[in-house]
């Protein structure tokens, strides 16, 4: 009896081994490239790895990292969300309105910002799933809508959070009073872990991949793919709301004209992290690594006083190389 029951469980362990090795190879490659890059900068500029600068890099990763996490889920489904940047701005503008005009208490203000983000995401999802708009078009519409609404609602002026003392500390306060260790970094970390759990432990992640892998087969398995798509786009919007909180907290204001361009950096992070834009595969760890690579790279280039115009070109080159190596790995597979 014991022998027969032992056998399958042993098999399960074997199986786990093989899969994690496969998934890990990709992460290891990206991690290797990342470490090489860090060493490169460290040798040229030793203060690149100073405590202060590491924290600077991590803080700089927060907004893009959160956006990239959200957009990753959409990318897993084979979709795309180019509205995350402006949805982020819109959610922070609405938070500002909730604080200054409606006088809501701070926790509600923050929650409201998240809800606005999630709502925008849900509308994206509705457009994609129920109105059959291509994701690019649906989210481009949302990008324009939120961009416009942010300007209209704010009256094209920054909205300040000075009415809520301590708002700025949400992002730039020190965690447990450790100097330089910003709360935002902890928030990113916690949310990244949550994203990881959602991705690998819940049916949201499972269905995101299933839809990306073969939407029709998933639908024909009786899965309500439409509803799941709405849920996944909402999740992406929610993450944009998180990013909006960090952004507005760092600036202690909502800047209505910001946001455009952030979506591309977020998508770039997801792609550098090895996530295929075709959907059906990918990893949250990769996305976070991708976001770290972008912020570490730009920081390093800045420290070396590389002209701004060249910085952009170099990031573009890294993006192209990342995708190239990923493609090669896939072909070999």
């Amino acid at each position: 009896m014991t022998r027969t029951s032992d056998k399958p469980s042993k098999k399960i362990n074997d199986n786990k081994m093989t899969s994690s090795i496969r998934d890990r190879s990709q992460i290891v490659i990206i991690l290797g490239i990342y470490i090489l890059m860090i060493l490169f900068f460290f040798i040229l500029k030793p203060n690149y790895l100073s405590y202060d600068n590491i924290m600077t890099i991590l803080l700089a990763t927060c907004v893009n990292g959160l956006l990239a996490l959200g957009v990753s889920f959409v990318i897993f489904t084979g979709g795309i969300d180019i509205s995350v940047g402006t949805v982020m701005t819109f959610s922070s503008v609405m938070s500002g309105i909730a604080l200054n005009n409606w006088g809501l208490p701070l926790p509600l203000v923050i929650l409201f910002g998240f809800l606005v983000g999630a709502f925008c995401g849900a509308v994206n999802g509705f457009g994609v799933a129920k109105m059959y708009l291509p994701p690019f078009i649906a989210t481009m519409a949302m990008q324009m809508i939120t961009k416009g609404l942010s300007l209209v609602v704010s009256g094209i002026k920054p909205i300040y959070f000075t009415a809520a003392p301590g708002y700025q500390n949400i992002a730039t306060g020190y965690f447990l009073g450790i100097p330089g260790f910003y709360n935002a970094i902890v928030i990113l970390l916690v949310i990244a872990v949550i994203a990881y759990i959602i991705f690998s432990k819940t049916i949201i992640g499972r269905f995101a991949l299933a839809i990306g892998s073969n939407e029709e087969a998933t639908r024909l398995s009786g899965v309500k793919t439409d509803n799941w798509k709405i849920a996944i786009y909402s999740l992406c919007g929610l993450f944009a709301g998180f990013a909006g909180l960090i952004m507005s907290s760092r600036l202690n204001s909502a800047q209505p004209q910001l946001g455009a361009g952030y979506e591309l950096e977020a998508i770039a992070a997801a792609v550098i992290g090895g996530n295929s834009l075709n959907g059906g595969e990918g990893s949250i760890t990769g996305t976070i690594l991708g976001a770290l690579i972008i912020s570490s790279l730009t920081n390093g280039l800045r420290i070396m006083s590389v002209p701004t115009e060249l910085q952009s070109a170099i990031v573009g080159l890294v993006l192209a190389l990342a995708v190239y190596f990923d493609k090669r790995r896939r072909i070999n597979e």
Partner: peptide, 13 residues
Amino acid sequence: RRYGLALGMNVDE
């Protein structure tokens, strides 16, 4: 391959 399986996903999934 088109309607039955998510080919990129594993047997268990």
